[in-house]
Design a protein around this nucleic acid. Sequence first.
DNA 1: AATACATTTCAACAATCGCTGAAATATCCC
DNA 2: GGGATATTTCAGCGATTGTTGAAATGTATT
Lengths: 114, 114
Amino acid sequence: MKSADAVVILAALAQDNRLDVFRLLVEAGPDGMPAGHIAGSLKMAPSALTFHLDRLRDTGLITVRRDGRSMIYAARIEAMNNLVSYLTDHCCQGRPELCRPTPHSASRKLQKAR
Amino acid sequence: MKSADAVVILAALAQDNRLDVFRLLVEAGPDGMPAGHIAGSLKMAPSALTFHLDRLRDTGLITVRRDGRSMIYAARIEAMNNLVSYLTDHCCQGRPELCRPTPHSASRKLQKAR
DNA sequence: AATACATTTCAACAATCGCTGAAATATCCC
DNA sequence: GGGATATTTCAGCGATTGTTGAAATGTATT
């Protein structure tokens, strides 16, 4: 990943409503959720939501598919993976462990189905 | 780290010149480097650089100290650490390894989450 | 004190951002 | 087809962003 790509993804996440949308979609999992549910859940105007979804989608952070009248949006964890890799590779003095702390703050051994 | 703090840090990094400045300071290491060197290295106008340094500093991504006529700026890796932790904790479906492949698990096959 | 050096401050300005509300598009159901 | 539902498109708007260039500030040297 190049710097320019990182900037675009960082910008997509650097807005409270968009970060909320992305986090909600991460929670929703691979099946995603329809735009209407997102708008309801985050109390956003439909047109404002579309605006932000477009920007998330342009950067590859989310995907969309149609299901009847609904548009189903889903997070692309891979994109977040790429961003985190970029940050740890380029912003940690060549010592990833400086930015990639051992899982002390992270949820300990959540042991989800794998 | 709260969402609002993450947004602020993401926004600070979501600009090409600022990301370049931060990366340069990361390379420079704990001793940092004077503003003039940054401006020269990245070919930025002094006043534009000050503008961006202020924003990086406001978010805690860099520190500054005076040395004679020079202002020495240095990256705060800890702030990047916090950001990466936030992203892996909140944007990876409770499975940090999805967004942060550790060296030893990098080759492991990622199974589909369901 | 006078001068040079390093950086910041400030007032502009164009460009972009995020929001609102009305209209348009797409799909489903009768 | 007609009506209801889900979402997008679009114009307009105030607010914010990033840049420039001139002036101001702070520090070292003589």
